[in-house]
Amino acid sequence: MRKRIISKLDIKDNNLVKGIQLEGLRVLGDPNQFAKDYYLSGIDEIFVQDVIASLYQKKSITKFLKNFSKDVFIPICVGGGINNLNDVTTLMNEGADKISLNSYALKNPSFIDELVKNFGSSTICINIEVKLINNTFKLFVNNGRDPINKNLIDWISEIQDRGAGEIHLVSIDNDGMEKGVDINLLNFVKSLDINVPLIYSGGFNLNKDKNLLNKIGENLDGIAIGSYFHMQSKHLIRDSLWFRETSSDNNSLTIKDIINNIRKDF
């Protein structure tokens, strides 16, 4: 099985946005255009999340899905503010293949059981947002805003017991930094007992990570990439300020080149 290269799209009010360490969101453009571009470049999957949905219960994602399914023929995992079975049915009907949960699952873990029973294990993905505090990986909800007092190892084991079919691990420290993946976090999870697909996201940078992923990414089934891809999509970005604030040093590479480079040893 090929390791997955996933494009991560954060959505707010029908716009593609991106922050740094899940904070300070900037509007980049039309998420459907980005999704289509990444699809045509050979990406394996799209992971889209409504970054404010879990705080304000907004549902702008169904609008995105309506356009998405028209011309993008790869799987899509959808997250943001999901807290009842009807939400999931609606999203699946609009074309979602998998749904992703964080906040609500942590507060009501038995909801995972209910989802698995209704939609099957392989449809349910749990998003885990992690930040290193005093040498311990702490869990967060609401897109990195609020800490939750639960142990990471226990949580990883619990969600597997409850039947979730995929884990998406996010390093809040590295998110949007483009300084490379979170080596400490990946080394930490390498030793854990994870029997479902594991996807990592946070900070990917081709130059920093290309010879690293095959070493520390053994247990990984895929990597989700946000900023680093958006940086190579200048023609789609409305906000020119965004470029001055970030520091990509691969401006000449196309998304296709990046994907091919990652595939060489991951």
Binding site: M1, R2, K3, R4, D44, S121, S122, G165, E166, I194, N195, V196, P197, L198, E218, D221, G222
Partner: peptide, 12 residues
Amino acid sequence: NKRLKIPHTGWN
């Protein structure tokens, strides 16, 4: 084989 995850999710 522990490296082979279930669900079988992805491109094969």
